[in-house]
Amino acid sequence: MTSLSTDAPAASTARSGKRAATPESRPRQSFWARENIAKILFVVPAGLYMLLFFGYPVAKNLVMSMQDYTTKTFFTGEAPWVGFQNYITVISSNLFGPALLNTALFTIASIAGQFAIGLALACFFNRNFPLSRFLRAMLLLPWLLPLIVASATWRSILDQDSGILNQFLGTFGVPAIPWLTSPDVALLAVILVNIWVGIPFNVTLLYGGLQDIPAELYEAGQLDGATGWKAFRYITWPNLRPVVSVVLILGVVYTIKVLDIILGLTNGGPANSTQTIAVRSYQESFVNFEFGVGAAFSNILIIISLVFAVIYLRANRRAVDE
């Protein structure tokens, strides 16, 4: 096996060496040129796509956020330059503070819930009992459904008058809670749904991390009396740490931009109690047709994501190094 893999490059250098020795070097040159062009052609479609559908939007958003870009722009083609005016509009709007706070609450609470339940389930499935593989795969379902389907389903469950949740709570004498129609609980309801959607992702990644911890560590720990909670505290947790940081940071990056669930459940209401930066960005652009202001909102979103992306990449590198 080893000899095979070391042989191959040696053979190839021998071949090219032989070719170099032939008097005709022009065809060889054009062969390598063609070779390199062929290689580049493999990545050209993807490179173009990435530029057009990721690079261009980011650049365009930056420019748009400095322009008075509205419906009028589509007719006149004019988008007057306004500098940082859109950002001033955003930050001084009275929805900015609440939206930022909601984004933080939504993100932190969602991740805390998803992670805690996800870790518990991952530890549970790590026991590998009969059917565990099948059950774990089925657990992916909430994550694979279209988010708007999840929203519709939860809308029916959380319905104040006839939803099953209130009927269930009613049997314990709890008065009907206006989950999605009261500003006091709407954010909580949206967070609960998002936790439900995110659990499978957390279970999958954390389970993978648990599987990578060598069984010998637990066997050795058992001799030292580390079982149960102690084994988790002194063996599982320290070894899982790199995976944990990746899960948490990716969680932030993906949760901060959640839009489908909030639009499907509450549309940012009632009384703006579920407005987040992502919802603001969507509504400014596609409801108010203030594309410049919407772009400013989404750039704020990008900056927050970017901070966590950098943390992610560093954590990931550490995870690889360790």
């Binding site: 559908f53 990721f54 261009y56 939007p57 980011v58 365009k60 958003n61 748009m64 870009y69 722009t73 589509f74 990056v253 901060i256 931009k257 839009l259 992502a278 960005s281 969507y282 652009s285 596609f286 594309f291 919407g294 772009a295 989404s298 750039n299 979103l301 990008i302 994501s305 970017l306 992306a309």
Partner: peptide, 14 residues
């Protein structure tokens, strides 16, 4: 990691 709304924002105009 780029939020979809960023892409939508720019693609709508394009």
């Amino acid at each position: 990691m780029i939020p979809g709304v960023v892409i939508a924002n720019a693609l709508y105009a394009a």
